[in-house]
Amino acid sequence: MTGRAKVFSAFILTLMAAFFANLSLGATNIAPEDILLAFFSFDVDNYDHFVVIYQRLPRVLIAVFVGSVMACSGAVLQGLMRNPLASPALLGINAGATLFVVGGVIFFGISSAFQGIAALIGGICGFGACLMVARMSGMDGNPRGLSLILSGAVVSMLFIGIANALLLSTPELRNEFLGWVTGNINHVYIDRLHQMWPVGVGGVVVLLILSRALTLIALGPEKAASAGVNIVLVSRLAIASVVLSSSAAVAICGPIGFVGLVVPHIVRPLVGAKQTMIIPGCILVGASICLIADMVARLAFSPFVLHTGVMMDLFGGVVFAFVVRRYYLTPGLRRSL
């Protein structure tokens, strides 16, 4: 077995372990054999079976979806912009989706079914606003996308600030959305997963198809174009996939930040720099990390339950500091992606 095959085997085993641990551990611990029975011989009168199928499995599926989609999106954005800080959260996508859902509910009273659509439009608008601010600053030609990331930070702060202000001024919606705006993986959102999964899966499939061209773009646009890559087409398709699939993830359980930033930095040293390897690695590791974060958020401070988004922010903040130190603050050691 090659080194890379071993790494992917470890990723799959970790995901399976996190998957079953998430189904098993909670307010009541459920034995592995009962989990299997719940799947293959469901008993409607068995409370444990009910908990596994109707409460924990939806959470697990949402965590797998959100973790995979966000991690892939971050890996592709970091490669496209050749910047280690790029991620959906830092390019206004998460904040745009959040603002449009909150604004849509407050101003137009949109139903849960339309909140997904609002999140998709919001993600596109958030990224569009980020591009616009970068262009207004006259720095959009910055080769490493730094201006885009700074613009994304500005747009994100603005959009999240407006969303928070709207929620604070609407007490009857505050409790309902407080969990969602901090990134809350909850079984009640399973209908949204049912509505949104084709968008996320479709986006990831497109990114997988483009992965070889995306690796070449990470070598630089001139190199990629001379090797035969249609830069404009590939970049636009990839960005559209990233924006739509991460907005779909936000639509389900709110913005879970840092997955998109952190996971590619964990995966890359283990599988190499080819997007053909990074994207599948991010699918597995992103899902595992979201599952573990969700589990830790539920169990670490029992009887209190943290939101998964808060847990990821705590973990991601530490890794963010490491990334900044490694790539930006170490003189003479600034590394490329």
Partner: peptide, 21 residues
């Protein structure tokens, strides 16, 4: 090109393989 940029963790064999895109 005049300036060439290689991502970390990419090995020579992979770089050459990409050329056949």
């Amino acid at each position: 090109p005049q300036e060439n940029h290689c991502p970390d963790y990419i090995v020579l064999g992979e770089l050459i393989e990409l050329a056949g895109y």
